[in-house]
Design a protein around this nucleic acid. Sequence first.
DNA 1: GTGGTCTAGACCACA
DNA 2: GTGGTCTAGACCACT
Lengths: 124, 124, 124, 124
Amino acid sequence: MIIKIDMAMDTPIYEQLRREIIKGILNGQLTSGEVLPSVRNMAESLSINMHTVSKAYQKLKAEGFLSLQRNNRATINDKENYAYTKEYLDMVDVEIERIVIEAKCKGLKKEVLMDIVEKSYNKY
Amino acid sequence: MIIKIDMAMDTPIYEQLRREIIKGILNGQLTSGEVLPSVRNMAESLSINMHTVSKAYQKLKAEGFLSLQRNNRATINDKENYAYTKEYLDMVDVEIERIVIEAKCKGLKKEVLMDIVEKSYNKY
Amino acid sequence: MIIKIDMAMDTPIYEQLRREIIKGILNGQLTSGEVLPSVRNMAESLSINMHTVSKAYQKLKAEGFLSLQRNNRATINDKENYAYTKEYLDMVDVEIERIVIEAKCKGLKKEVLMDIVEKSYNKY
Amino acid sequence: MIIKIDMAMDTPIYEQLRREIIKGILNGQLTSGEVLPSVRNMAESLSINMHTVSKAYQKLKAEGFLSLQRNNRATINDKENYAYTKEYLDMVDVEIERIVIEAKCKGLKKEVLMDIVEKSYNKY
DNA sequence: GTGGTCTAGACCACA
DNA sequence: GTGGTCTAGACCACT
């Protein structure tokens, strides 16, 4: 699986890595039970720090996307482990609201915005 | 106009202030030509530092939301000055995509997500 | 003579006024011996502070463009009084160099830059 | 690379630093991919404050001259990232016009002015 | 160790 | 009185 990290982006590297793994789960490149490269290997292949990879793995573990075994192997979990919760929905709500306010203020029509969301949803 | 700043939030204060002002423009509390409090006054009334307010004003200026006049007044601009651009649309696209990927991965149906966006849009 | 002041510009008002008067001299709207409005009148008609007008007049006087009489009247001088000097040439050189360096760095061809200068010269 | 800062000059320090870096890019002392000193190091070697350096770097980033990488390196960009735009040309036009008007008013011949520009261009 | 954010206090040009 | 610049020192997330 190809993971793209952009050092020039303002998003933290560990967050970029986290998102890439989630994307991998979504598009089927990472299936339940699959084992991710070790922290050390992942860090090497991406030319980033081990701590950064570890941070991404830890966050994904906390969210239920994967399990970390004693042997430091990260295994992708079943869907049930990371199904959306009430808290997650609230968070999405806040994020969407922030985007919507600015977009509406700038004159973006509801239809255009909804279209972006729909197209994005269908894309993956 | 009431501006809420949450010092405990991880969003920078200047960014919170920026968003509150945009929200004010959207809901009609700040209309074109309206004058904002001076940097010093705004800082005092929010119990934050001058420079933090200044940073918010500068960003809003760069985005066309307001003009910093030579007579030391921050004036809300006309809609034309901050209408959405191609670059802004691209940015929204990236942000939406990020949210959509994670939401879809977590099993959130398209209809539910679209509903959140629509409700948010109609709310303001 | 019409004088345009843009409160949203970052150029100081007194400097804008100064430039407008020089422009007036160049295009023949202000001829040698002509009398400018009093500081008070000019300030009123431009809706700016008297001190600001005074500052512009003082600077123009120091540069030889006009004379200030005891009755506070500003009179445009003859050309000889404000002919370019060695110091002025040096200053132009510095300003041009600053523009040229950045322009060249950005890939602007010499011909394009020279063309801008020539067109600008012929325009007035 | 030698960077000269004149504390007595009326040009802000961050702006002087910005120009020095652009000059370095132009004369080949700073090539694409090259890494600038960290904000702290640059500040120390110039005996100025961290924040002042940061402001210069931020401006250069906004203009495309460099990227501030997540691994805390300020890297010079490729030419494409800071090629001149329509907006930049308009800005140059305004600046040139301002100089030309005053110069012409002071009796400076077109040829002399053009010569200054040409010499300046060839110098770097 | 690095940059980003925030605060505080100072000076200055502008109005 | 106003904003812009600069300094200094602190905290924090990221690497």
